[in-house]
Amino acid sequence: MFIGATAALLVAMALTLIRAFAGPTLFDRVLAANSFGTKTVLLIGVLGFLTDRPEFLDIALLYALVNFIGTIAVLKFFRYRNLGLSNTEAADREEID
């Protein structure tokens, strides 16, 4: 069962990667890279069970956290075109919009 899951995950990773290469818009690429991270988290979890070492799940959890930080950074970049704004400056920008 885990072998089948691994194969399916690899196919899904390849598909998202193709979408990240092909585009056509920027949002396709960002979404593809993001879901690619999720696929990696799942793959590492499944790999742990495949080799009878379920403790890999902890690492998969860490990856999920890292992915989350990356998503926040990407979204902030899209919204404000800047990552170094403080809260008040960000609020000012919001009013200008």
Partner: peptide, 12 residues
């Protein structure tokens, strides 16, 4: 921007 996203995928 796409390259930055792809380097993240590369690291993963």
């Amino acid at each position: 921007f796409a390259v930055a996203a792809l380097t993240g995928a590369f690291s993963l």
